[in-house]
Design a protein around this nucleic acid. Structure first.
Lengths: 246, 246
DNA sequence: GCACGCGTCCCACTGGGTGGAACCAGATGC
DNA sequence: GCATCTGGTTCCACCCAGTGGGACGCGTGC
C-alpha cells in the first residue's frame, strides 16, 4: 500500500518513537514537513503528535525547528545501565585519565554498534565521540573488544554481514588475538588520524557488558604503551561492577 | 467516569508518557502491576505498551523490574538545551572548579522547579544533586537566582502558592535583594548542612535561561567569599551563550 | 498580485487500541 | 499433594480515539 519507501509505522507508539528517533538523527533541528517525509506519516498526523509532544516538553520548538526537549533529557539521565556504569567507572576513569591525558570512552553494545555511555575529553579535537553517540562495532577498538568475547551468534552474524569473505576471515583472526590479549586496537580505521585502544568489561558470568577505551592522535600516542593501562582499567571496572550488585 | 483517582490519561500518547514518567519517578525499578496502579491504566494495556517499549529498548527489564532503557539515554543525550549549555559552560565550570573545588551545578527552570543540567562533583558527600534531577525553586539558590529575574507572573504565582502571606512577603523581599546583588544564597534550606550560592545566566534580551551554583558544607564554606566567583562565572556563561548563536 | 511552502484545523470514517476475562507460571501455605 | 495468591501475558469482540485528505491562514519571494 501507499508509497512506502520503508516500513511505515502503523501503531501510535511506533509513530511516536519514529518521530522521536528522526528528531534525534536530524542533528540540529527538523520541521514538521521533513518529519512527515522521513517517517512516511501524513503531515497532519505529524503536526498533531509533535504538538502534543511539545506540550509535554518531550520536544521543544526553537527558531530553527523541532528539537529534543527537557523531559527526554530527564528520562535519559535516569537510564539504568549508564547510571550503574557511571558510578562504578568514575574513579577508574579518573585514574586512567591521570595516567594518559587522552580521550576516554566507556561504551556498551547496542545492536550492531557501540553506544558511548561516558566520555572524557582528552586533547583530541574535534572530539571523535561523546556520550550518547554510536560508533560502528567492526572498526572501533571498543566494538572489537566486546565482539571478541561475545558468544551470541546473532550479533556476530549481523556485524559480519557486509564484509566480503576475505575481510571477514582476517577480522575473525583479529578477534581471536584480541581474545588472548584482552586488548583491541583501532589504527585509524574509524576516524582518520585517531588510534583507539580498548579492553572489555565483563559481567561475573563472563558476558561482555561494556568496553573502555583510550583514543589519541596516531602521530603521538603509542598503542602498546596504552595497552596495559587500558587492560588494567577494564579489569578494575569489571571488579567494581561485580561488587556493586547490592 | 471510572474510579479516577487522578486525571486518567486517555490518548495513547498520554498513556505512554505517563508510563515513562512513572518509571522515572520510581527510583530503581517498577513492575507492571505497580505501573497500572500508579497510572490508572488497566493492567493488560500497561503490559502491552510496556512490552512494546521494551522491544524498542526505550525500557529494559531487569531482575528488579522495569527501568529506563538505552534508547531514552540516547535521546536524552541529544537534548538541545543541555547540549548548548554544556558546550558553553564547560570552560567556565573548569575555571570555577579550580577556584573553589566545590560541588557545581548548572540548572534551568522547569515548571516550578529547577532541573540540573550539568553537575560537577566537589567534596560534598552524599552528592546533593546530579544532572537530570529536580530541586525546588523556592529554597535553592539556583531557583532564587532565576526567579529574581523572571517577569512571568504565571511562574511566580505557581511558585508562591503554598507559602503563607508572611513567608511570601519575606521571600519577595529576598528576591529583590537577589536582583540587586545578582547572587542568591541557600543557607541549609534545601539540604541540611549544605550552603548554596548561585547567580543567574541571562539571554541577550535579559530573560533568565539558567543559573550556576556552588554548594559546600556550611561548616567550611564562606558564601560571601564564593559570591563574586559565582557571579563572575555566570556573567562569563551569559557572555559565551550570547556569542554562541551561530 | 500570484504562487509556493509550511503549519494548523476540521470532521466523517474506520481499524487500531482497548480491557475484561481467561490463562500461565512461580511462590507460599497448609 | 492441592489450594491460594500474586505477578504477567494473551485473547478477541466492541467501539471510540486516531486518522488524514483537504481546506485554511500566514509569511515570503518573485
Amino acid at each position: 500500500m501507499r508509497s512506502a519507501l520503508r516500513d511505515e509505522p502503523v501503531s501510535v507508539l511506533d509513530r511516536i518513537l519514529a518521530i522521536l528517533d528522526t528528531v534525534r538523527e536530524s542533528h540540529g533541528s527538523t520541521t514538521i514537513t521533513q518529519l512527515a517525509l522521513a517517517t512516511g506519516i501524513p503531515k497532519s498526523t505529524v503536526s498533531r503528535l509533535v504538538g502534543d509532544l511539545i506540550r509535554q516538553r518531550y520536544l521543544t520548538r526553537t527558531e530553527e525547528g523541532v528539537v529534543i526537549g527537557l523531559r527526554l533529557f530527564e528520562l535519559g539521565a535516569r537510564a539504568s545501565t549508564p547510571r550503574r556504569l557511571s558510578v562504578a567507572a568514575l574513579p577508574v576513569l579518573a585514574e586512567l585519565f591521570n595516567a594518559t591525558g587522552e580521550h576516554l570512552n566507556v561504551a556498551v553494545q547496542e545492536g550492531r554498534e557501540m553506544l558511548s555511555v561516558i566520555s572524557v575529553r582528552g586533547r583530541l579535537r574535534p572530539v571523535p565521540s561523546r556520550a550518547g553517540v554510536r560508533v560502528p562495532s567492526v572498526t572501533t577498538a571498543l566494538g572489537k573488544a566486546v565482539l571478541a568475547f561475545t558468544d551470541d551468534e546473532g550479533v556476530l552474524g549481523s556485524v559480519f554481514t557486509g564484509l566480503d569473505s576475505s575481510r571477514r576471515n582476517t577480522f575473525e583472526k583479529e578477534l581471536v588475538s584480541v581474545r588472548t590479549a584482552s586488548v583491541a586496537i583501532d589504527l585509524c580505521e574509524t576516524f582518520p588520524g585517531v588510534v583507539g585502544v580498548a579492553s572489555p568489561v565483563l559481567s561475573p558470568d563472563r558476558v561482555p557488558v561494556a568496553a573502555i577505551s583510550v583514543a589519541g592522535p596516531v602521530t603521538d600516542m603509542d598503542p602498546h604503551r596504552m595497552a596495559p593501562l587500558v587492560r588494567h582499567a577494564a579489569l578494575a571496572l569489571t571488579h567494581r561492577l561485580a561488587l556493586q550488585v547490592a
